[in-house]
Every structure is written in C-alpha cells, then in structure tokens.
Design a protein around this nucleic acid. Structure first.
Ligand SMILES: [Mn+2]
Ligand SMILES: [Mn+2]
Ligand SMILES: [Mn+2]
Ligand SMILES: [Mn+2]
Lengths: 132, 132
DNA sequence: ATAGAAATATAGCCATAGCTATATTAATTA
DNA sequence: TAATTAATATAGCTATGGCTATATTTCTAT
C-alpha cells in the first residue's frame, strides 16, 4: 500500500516544486521567467520549457508565448500549501539540530513524502523549540 | 543545488526499494519471485519484470530465465544499507508519536531523501526514546 | 532603426516506469 | 503422463523528464 502512495507523491512533486518556485519568483522579482526557473532547478531551459507547457495544459499556469509566467488560482493554492509544508519540514530538521544547508537539501525531498499527520507532529515539535 | 540532489535520489530509490524487498523475500521465503515483488509493490508483473532486467544488467541481481532472483554482493550491500536506513527513519517517526501505519507509509518515501547527517540525528533521537 | 544578444520554443533523441495483451516456460494436478 | 494453471518474458503503447541542437521571437544597445 505504501509504495503506491510514494509513486503518487512522485507524480506530483515536480509540479509542487515548480509552482512553489514560480510563486517565489513572482514574489521576489515580480515575474517568473523560464530561464530563471531552469537556473534555480539546475536543468536545461528546454526541459523547463517542456514542463511549463505541461503545467499550462494542466491549468496551473497562465502564459502567452514568449512571455513570462503566472499562476492560476489552482496553481496558487498548490504553491502556498507546498510552501507552508516545505517551511515546516525545514524548521523541523533545523530544530532537530541539523545545519541549515543540510536541512535545506533534505527538506527539498522529504517535504513531498510527509503526511498530514506527520506534518502536525512536526509543527508540534517546532512549537516546543526555538526555530518556529 | 538541492534539486539536483533530489533528482539523484529519485534515480536510485526504485533500485533501493527493489533490492530491499528482494532481500526481505529471500530472508523470509527463501526465494524472491517476480510475482511476489509485483504484488508487494502493487504493480503489474510486466513492470516488475522489466525493472528486474535493468537491475540484472546493472549487476545488482543474479538470475536465470524463468527462475527466481538472487542478489549479487553489490546488490546485498545496497539492500542492507537501505534496510538499516529505512528502519531508522521508521523508528524515528514512531518515536515522534506517529502511529505505525502512517509512519510506515511516510518512511517509505522519506528514507530516500535523508542525508547521513540527518540519519545520525534520527539515531540519536531514537536512543533517547522508547522505540530503538 | 537595426544588429546582436538573450529568452523562448521546437525537434529529436534517451532512459525510466507505468500499463495491457500475448507468448513461452515451469509447476501442479487430475 | 497430459492438461491446466501459474509464472515469466516480450511486444508495443503512454507519460514524464532529462539532454543538445536549432529556430523563432523579444529585448537591448549601438
Ligand atoms: Mn519545496
Ligand atoms: Mn521539493
Ligand atoms: Mn522506499
Ligand atoms: Mn521522493
């Protein structure tokens, strides 16, 4: 049963990372460009472009050809939920005593495999610690 | 930087799950059959067969056509390391207060994204708690 | 205004992991 | 032993996400 859940998580995690990153870029730079996404993810621009097309087809993204990218409401919802969850996991790892760099790296993968129940426990753990 | 690490983890995690499972089957039933692997992973037998062929080509598995499967030394090493890590993560989640079922499901995904440093912290946390 | 640079898009390739349908071999049972 | 059932293998399809090379469009500077 668990393996099926993990496979489902893997289907959505690339989407989650893209949407979270796009939201961050929109927030910090005012626009999200494919070239920035490719840089942040350390992938080729053609790869980023292809995935962006998929996200557009799936209704997560608004865009015009050759223009920068925006989130639909559907996309925003996933982005903000993912960001919150990411932050909880990151703080949790740091509260466990892990250095910021390692915690960042691990959180990037772990975040997609944390259930609601586990997330609640992490939040509780964070509340009892320094980094909240 | 982190995203590249996560992608690398995803490249190896299916391999790790297969080898860990094969080791378990060899241990409990004396042999590992493709039909059992497919059942445990909740995938079609053809899919399991194809991945087993890949693992064979990559030197993790010994096999004869139409016969059950064994691990090479290389395969055994990854299996035992993965099993140990899996166990640490599972115990850690349970020590955090998560029920066994949820902890099992989450551990199946999280295990592949845990660095050596984080693993050490989890072990330390486990030592201070009940479930070791 | 236009040439060159930068960004985006597309084409065509690879690997992986899913699936169903079908063929082949092995194991069981009548 | 022969027929049936079970297991394994193969073929052919889909989707995803990597890559490089090249085309197209937009932006920037001269
Ligand atoms: Mn994230
Ligand atoms: Mn992530
Ligand atoms: Mn796993
Ligand atoms: Mn993962």
């Amino acid at each position: 049963m668990s393996f099926r859940k993990v496979r489902n998580a893997h289907k959505t995690e690339n989407t989650e990372d893209y949407l979270e990153l796009i939201a961050e870029l929109l927030n910090s730079k005012g626009e999200a460009r494919i070239v920035d996404i490719a840089n942040e993810l350390s992938i080729a621009q053609a790869t980023a472009n292809k995935t962006i097309q998929r996200l557009h087809n799936q209704g997560f993204i608004k865009k015009q050809p050759y223009r920068s990218i925006f989130l639909t409401v559907k996309g925003q919802q996933i982005a903000s939920k993912s960001k919150k969850r990411h932050n909880t996991v990151l703080k949790f790892l740091m509260n466990l005593g892990i250095d910021q760099k390692t915690a960042s790296a691990d959180a990037e993968g772990i975040e997609h495999h944390v259930s609601e129940k586990t997330l609640k426990k992490m939040e509780k753990f964070n509340s009892a610690k320094k980094i909240v």
